[in-house]
Amino acid sequence: MRLIHTVAAAALVSAAIIAPASAVDISGAGATFPYPIYAKWADAYKKETGIGLNYQSIGSGGGIKQIQNKTVTFGASDAPLKGDDLNKHGLVQFPMVMGGIVPVVNLEGVKPGELVIDGPTLAKIFLADIKSWDDPAIAKLNPNVKLPNQAIAVVHRSDGSGTTFNFVYYLSDVSADFKSKVGVNTSVQWPAGIGAKGNEGVANNVANTKGSVGYVEYAYAKQNKLTFTKMVNKDGKAVAPTSETFQAAAANADWKSQPGFGVILANQPGATSWPMTAATWILMYRVPQDVANSTEALKFFDWAYKTGGRMAEELDYVPMPANVVKDVEGTWAAEIKDANGKPLYSVTN
């Protein structure tokens, strides 16, 4: 029922954003994963400045198409664009907020955080190479947990999603077998299991199906009180999914190694890093046509970086680390300019 409340709240928020069509309204479209936090920020920002944000969560693919057609001020995507694509369309890309993806299980007598899984084992489960919960590979990681002789029911996303993208990116990173058999995309050809629509669909199917395993964003695991697992990270340490371990992964990442900050936070080094952390990106034009709206959008993003962190944590998102924010804002000043070559917005710290 938490779900229904969330949906109702989101509907109210969007109604509040749409209702008074004031002078400048920022328009954006794209990823569904960050929608709740964008909506919350938009509501708070509207109260503070009177400037509204109209964000349509139509999916990352849709967001990329919309920004390429110039129907919105910014696009949003869970999968980063490659440097070539950014240059081809004259786009700037920067990360806005992060979240964690957690494996969830439904096993009788197993409490949240009790089960430990490592990447290669998780990949084998989703490849259906490991079919039963009492498989030696799982038992070896969990000497103190009583594992039943029960078939594993795999639950995955049926709709294309950034969550899937980040999840299979991680599995491909740790398992060559998974990489060759499944690969990386927002939707993939799963060798086994049932597909459910949206995070809420996966959460519900895992909650209903005994012996099941799935993957959801952390917020859904927490709100639905699902049994999440610990993961063994790149440094070989078992970590629990928390705001701290997500942030550790982000802090240890080398953000400048990819154009447009397009670093995927899977399997980052660090003793306390959660291996399946995911960022979500904003796409804007280097030389935007609607200068006024784009300037307002940058002001909004700046405000969200500086004052939106607590709101993000309330919704179980992870704010960007300060050093990354500084780099992003440097990029704005250096790259987003009007037709005369003057920067649209320079951050005054």
Partner: peptide, 11 residues
């Protein structure tokens, strides 16, 4: 069902 599931994120 396939169309409804996959169209939004089909790149």
């Amino acid at each position: 069902a396939t169309i409804a599931n996959e169209f939004t994120e089909a790149v």
